[in-house]
């Protein structure tokens, strides 16, 4: 196998006495959709935050395309092609939908120490924003203030913002969180389209979605990866079943 796009080696992060990330190692190949599942409190968001640079690991390394990014600031990782969506929607609420996405495009179109030209009239940025919005089906809402969007639309916008940074690797932290059945189905369809273009790490509770989408699944329990394999193998894995105990039907019943 060629070098993985993302390689995590022996990552450790402690909060006081709690080891939230316990020697996690992980490989994500180019083009793969890699899901990370695990019970609540397993340290999934902590892991994602270390990948994006919002948290610094206590030890261990993260490589993106062979380059050590363990200690790069969040904005530098973004420049290298790492994009994330937040579990709890994190957008510029008092900006319009189009402005949110255009800013993401702007972040990757040279520096922004430009003080005179009207940024909203830069057709390059606007077109990039429009394209990203069309991908997620939000183009018709471009002029609306984000605070007026429905929760489902905000989740889609999170995705559009991430896409507008032209990422190599998309880290999605529970994109279905709080979505209804129809909205979830739409999101799954959308991710099925996106995975053709970009490598995705998906953290998700919705097992239907995970087993429908993932090429590989890593199972995180108490900060440790207890299994990392293709979905069919994960479904048979005894450790995984034990970890989920009463929830084991969740893993076995679907698909």
């Amino acid at each position: 196998m060629a070098d993985p796009l993302l390689r995590v080696e022996n990552l450790v992060r402690r909060f006081g006495g709690i080891v939230a990330t316990d020697h996690v190692s992980l490989d994500v190949a180019q083009g793969e959709l890699h899901a990370i599942i695990g019970p609540n409190g397993a340290g999934k968001t902590t892991l994602i935050s270390q990948l994006t640079g919002h948290l610094t690991p206590d030890s261990g390394s993260i490589y993106l395309g062979g380059r050590d990014i363990s200690h790069l600031a969040a904005y530098r990782r973004s420049a290298l092609g790492l994009a994330r969506s937040f579990q709890i929607t994190s957008l510029l609420l008092d900006f319009t939908v189009a402005d949110n996405v255009a800013l993401a495009a702007q972040a990757h179109a040279g520096h922004s120490f430009s003080f005179w030209r009207n940024a909203r009239k830069e057709s390059g940025l606007r077109m990039a924003a429009q394209a990203a919005l069309e991908r997620v089906g939000l183009a018709h809402r471009a002029g609306v203030l984000v605070s007026r969007l429905s929760h489902g639309e905000q989740r889609e916008l999170e995705l559009a913002v991430a896409l507008a940074t032209k990422p190599q690797l998309l880290l999605l932290d529970e994109p279905m969180a709080g979505l209804g059945v129809t909205e979830s189905a739409r999101m799954v369809k959308l991710l099925q389209e996106l995975r053709k273009e970009v490598t995705i790490v998906l953290v998700e509770h919705d097992m239907n979605a995970v087993f429908a989408l993932a090429d590989r699944i890593s199972v995180l329990v108490y900060g440790r990866v207890i299994a990392s394999d293709v979905p069919s193998a994960i479904r048979q894995n005894e450790d995984v079943k034990r970890a989920y105990l009463g929830d084991q039907h969740v893993v076995t019943a679907h698909g």
């Binding site: 420049a79 937040f86 994190s90 957008l91 510029l92 900006f95 800013l103 993401a104 972040a107």
Partner: peptide, 11 residues
């Protein structure tokens, strides 16, 4: 509006 978001998109 949201500094964390701005850093995440690369500023």
């Amino acid at each position: 509006s949201n500094e964390q978001r701005m850093q995440a998109i690369g500023f």
